[in-house]
Each structure stands twice: as C-alpha cells, then as structure tokens.
Nucleic acid binder design. Structure first.
Lengths: 244, 244
DNA sequence: CTCCCTAAATGGACTAGACGAATTTACATA
DNA sequence: TATGTAAATTCGTCTAGTCCATTTAGGGAG
C-alpha cells in the first residue's frame, strides 16, 4: 500500500461550503457575541448558493462554538468557549475551581449486569452486577455533561441510596466506604451527539461532542469506577496540566 | 441540590438519519474490519430513504471511526481507533512508547510577526518575530498530525537551520540552546478539518478533528513554545494519566 | 392597557435529482 | 498473455425545493 506519496504540493481546492464558512468567519469576527447574523435564506441569496450549502457552513461554525442557532429566532454569534481542567479531583471541586456552583440531577440509578466493557474495566467476572448511575452535571444551573458511572455492586453495597442523598459521588465513596481513588486514566474522543444526550444538554442530535472516559483506581491499582461523560464540543475546551 | 427534579421525560424522537445510523451500527458490529458495507444507493432503497439521509448517517459513523469511505470503491468497516497518550514527552518518545517509528516532514518554516494569540502565549511584545514551523508528523510512515510550532526568534536564533537537520524539535532545544521544558498545558477541542489539513492527513474537509494546543514552559515559568496540532478524530483516542 | 390568538419568519429535517471525481471492471487490441 | 481504454460503479458536491417546529410580532378582544 502506497502511504505517504510525498504530500508536497498539497493545496486542495476548497469545497464551496468552505468558502461560505470563511466568509461567515470574517463576519463573526467583526461582530460581538450575541449579535444576529443573516438568516439562512438571506445568505443563500447574497452568497449565490443553496440553503444546504449555507447550512453546512453554519453547522460547522456552530459545532466549533462560534455560532448559536435558535429555531424560530435566528443565528447568533456565540460566547467564547469555556475551558475545563482535567484533574484528579471531583466534578464538584473542578467547578469550584472555575467559580461555579456544581450540582447534579439524578437521571437514573439501577443495578444491572455489567456489559463486556464495564466488566473488563472494573475487573469483574462476566455477568457480575454493577450500579449504573446516570447524572446530569450542572454548573451554575447550566447543564454541562451527561455522566454515566459504573461501580461494582459487590464492592459498594447500598450505593444508590447513599447517592440519592449526596451530590458528590466521591464524597460518598470516601465517607461511606472509606475508599479514595488516587489515580485515573482519562480518555478523550470525539463523537456525534445521540438524541438523548443532545436533548439533555440542549443541543442538536449529531452535534460534535467530547466524550471523556474516566477510569479511576485505588493506590493498590484496584479499579474503583468507570465513568463515561458527554460534554458539548461547542462549549468546552479541556485543559490538562502535564509535568515531566 | 435538586435530585430527580423530573428531567421532563426527555426522550426525544430520533431523526430519521439516526435510525439509519443505528441500523448501520448493528450491521457494522456483525462484520469484521475491512468488510464492505452496502453502497449508498443500495441503502437508499433498502431503508426507504434519500441518499442525503443515508450519507448523514454514514458521515457520522465515519467521523467516529467506525467506517471508512473510499471514493469510487465503497464504504468499509474501519479498524479500531488507536489510543495516544498525552505525556510530557516529545512526539518521538510517545511514538516509541507505542511501538512506532516517528518521523516528520517539514512543510514550512518561516520567520513571521506573531499573531495576537501567539504573542500572548509566548509572552512577547506585540509585533515580535516568531518562527512558525509546520510539520507533518508520521508514525510508521502514516501521517498522524499536522503540527504548527511557534517559538520566539529572539530566544532561539538560527532555529530553522537546526530544525531542518533534526527530527526532534525538543532535542534541538536541549542540545543547541540548553533549554528543556518541564511543564506544559495541553488543551483539547473539536474542530472540523480545513481543506489543507484534511488533505495532508488523507481525510475529507469538514471531518471531525481533535486539535491539541501545547503550551510548554521552563522550570521558572518562562514559555518555550506554543504548538497547535491537528489529529484525525476518527483515528485517535487521547489518554491522559492523572494522579492526585 | 393587558391578554390571547393568529400569521409571519426562522431554523430543522428530508427528498429527488444533477453532475463530477476516483476507482474498478470489462473489453478490445496488440 | 499483457496492456491500454472505455464504461460502469461508487462516493463527493451541490441544487432547489417541500414540509414541520418553534419563536416572534402584530392585531383584536376584553
């Protein structure tokens, strides 16, 4: 297979929608956040193109957090993205570090048999029971992420009742079970928003999301929990601090 | 805290393309990587929908690394994604840790006035000169990322000549200038691929990318370089190891 | 003036089709 | 048999439109 055939003079022709996108980007940069941009139908006329093409350009700019669309109202210049640190602390502490008040809405909490991935991550035998706790994370009342935690039932008996009373899962683990994760592996990838997550986070199905997987461990290497969180890609930039 | 504050039975109706996507996902899971999936026009018929809708579903699956499209040939089940660790080491070392041989192709190297962002990041006065070095990063001959580094001209005189001879920028900094970054802030966000980056990485304009920004510092806090790297979102999952 | 209802405007989803570009296949020819 | 060329196939891009859902603005009733 001929990979890497000297990509020297690569200067591809841009698709038409990309020219529209660049035009809009210039417009955006000349405006303030909150400003209204022309309607899709106006843009089709002034840019001599189809609405599909205009929507493709607008869609990418929305996905990159530069524009916000509001059905029935219009398309607006977005506020700048928020940065969100990746640290070995709880969501509650991370929010506080950013000056927000964190809260959570319990969406569902159930006892279920572990899927293959959850069982492997938690180092459980196939078919073992896990708690599957789904929460909507809020910072200052704004939905931030949809978070699904998986924990071993055998290891944390009665966890669901404790979680219903507390906001911080980490605090429950520490106070009720005496367990404190000390390391974690955090994975990051891009995904398109499923309908449910999109609705919960107030965005559209298919919009780009950042999916964080957190796999946390005790000091002796025992896995504690495995969490998958969906964040809106148009709202957040993640920041990791690294040292040698 | 509002636990269980009636999430309003959010169970949105899925768009039609999403049903198509789920149908394809089942199909994908029943096949091996490399297998051919039905053509777009076949799917249009069997799923009783338009090609646009089929393509929207296929497009998301391609963006998530589940499918690969090849113009003129067909659409295939993709190989699993690769994980890429975020560490305070050079690309060269990261690649070696993953069992790859890293290399780089110099795309451009120029002396230019710093943009507002670059000047701020490198703590330079407005209008100061920076080197802008653009490289295509390869792992085992496969293009992995397009990387644009910014470094102060005043601080690293003659850098371009040194870089032309070496593959590792970090080694040049250490050996020729005696500087070794000891900490870095790495930002991660999602963006749509611009035509140039898409072509260099062998993907389509507009496909989802992970954009890493690396801002590295010396022990005394002086910024050393500011780098922006474009990775294909359909190929890589980033992993950060965190400790308390 | 206040309130409610309707109409207009806007983005959201989808369709059917045209043409182009890249690849693969089939076939004619040497 | 080997090779070059044309045709068919496949994905890539774009168009022009339909219909729906939501929001906003305006007008009428009280």
């Amino acid at each position: 297979m001929a990979v890497n055939a000297a990509p020297d003079q690569i200067e591809p022709r841009a698709p038409k929608y990309y020219l529209v996108k660049r035009h809009l980007l210039e417009l955006i940069e000349s405006l303030e956040p909150g400003a209204l941009v022309p309607t899709e139908r106006e843009l089709t006329v002034t840019l001599a193109t189809s609405r599909t093409t205009v929507r493709q350009a607008l869609g990418e700019l929305v996905g990159e957090g530069r524009l916000v669309r509001r059905q029935g109202s219009g398309t607006y210049v977005a506020e700048p993205k928020m940065t969100w640190p990746l640290q070995m602390t709880s969501f509650t502490e991370q929010a506080a570090a950013n000056g927000f008040v964190a809260s959570a809405q319990l969406l569902s909490a159930e006892r279920a048999r572990a899927t293959g991935e959850a069982a492997a991550r938690l180092r459980l035998p196939p078919g073992a029971y896990v708690y599957r706790i789904e929460r909507l994370r809020l910072a200052d009342e704004t939905p931030m992420a949809v978070e699904t935690s998986h924990l071993s039932v055998a290891r944390f008996p009665g966890l669901i009742k404790a979680v219903r009373r507390a906001s911080s899962l980490y605090r429950v683990l520490a106070e009720s079970y005496g367990i404190k994760p000390v390391s974690a592996e955090e994975t990051i990838e891009t995904r398109a928003a499923p309908p449910r997550e999109a609705a919960l986070l107030g965005t559209d199905t298919g919009s780009p999301m950042l999916v964080l997987g957190r796999h946390s461990f005790e000091a002796d290497g025992t896995p504690v929990e495995w969490v998958r969180s969906w964040y809106r890609g148009d709202r957040y930039t993640f920041v990791a601090k690294l040292t040698v």
